[in-house]
Write a protein that binds this DNA or RNA. Sequence first.
DNA 1: TGCCAGGCGGGGT
DNA 2: ACCCCGCATGGC
Length: 303
Amino acid sequence: MASRRVCCGSRNILPWRLVLGAYSFPWEFNGEEAYYVFDNAVITAVLRESSAELCAIPFGMDVDAYEKIILFFDLGNPYSEFYEKALGDPLLSEFAKKYMGWRPRLTSLWWATIIGICQQNTGFIQGWRMLASITKLYGKKIIVGSKALLIPPTPADVLKHPDLLVKARTGYRAETIIRVAKLFAEKDEDDIGYDELISIKGIGRYTASLALVLARREYWRAPIDRWLKKIISHVYHIDDRYADRIYHEIWGDYQGLAALATTIALDAVPLRKALERIDNGILVPTIMDKPTPANMWKFTNYW
DNA sequence: TGCCAGGCGGGGT
DNA sequence: ACCCCGCATGGC
């Protein structure tokens, strides 16, 4: 199989450690090197002093590897509008100062939807444990050079061994995941959007919005759950009922990005503690001894 | 032990 | 437009 490997230095000044490490498992990022599989390519990154060396190894013939790198990290976008707003925000200003330019990497819509489902009615650690267990139990790997990369199962893999979902302790979410797998097995990802997602039993506004934020950078969508709703009403001193409206007014086209940044800034701690942290002004990642969105890649023997 | 968590759907009023 | 409940699982 012919594959052209394309490398480039990062011309963008970005907080690369967080870009590579946020919501990454240890098998994706080890503090120095990162390996991601994205849309028929493996994207690798090596952390340098204040930049990163980025490579893409495409599987197919007609894949523009350079374009993949740009897309995966959204390198054409400085996110200046978002960070200007964030600098003036009581909750995100400190995060914005420290991590200016941070953005999520792209995730496939299939896996992003599973990520959303595994956040439903549970805490950060339990949810990401489910995702780790799913990944490990299916044990899907691809070989790149001398390395075997662990990657999430495909919809077909899930439909072939649906029992592994319960084994991964997903509980009642397993049925929803199977319904999602059926949809993605029969339909092209590009033809699936919000309406398609929420038509699946077990997927609602939150899950569909989060999936599209992670997979399509539809940052104008607002994945507001009970946790964020309470945080919004606390920070902006308004009633719960207006949280959606206020968030839209404040963040406009960047609600989804603000929501993600908030989970990182508050280490995704449970609501009660999140409100305490806000009152105490601890608004950047600080927790070291337990997995958080920012540091979960360090917990090599945990997942 | 019972409650409760980054939801959701189904049922009510 | 609300309110309420059950749901797998695991942590406290």
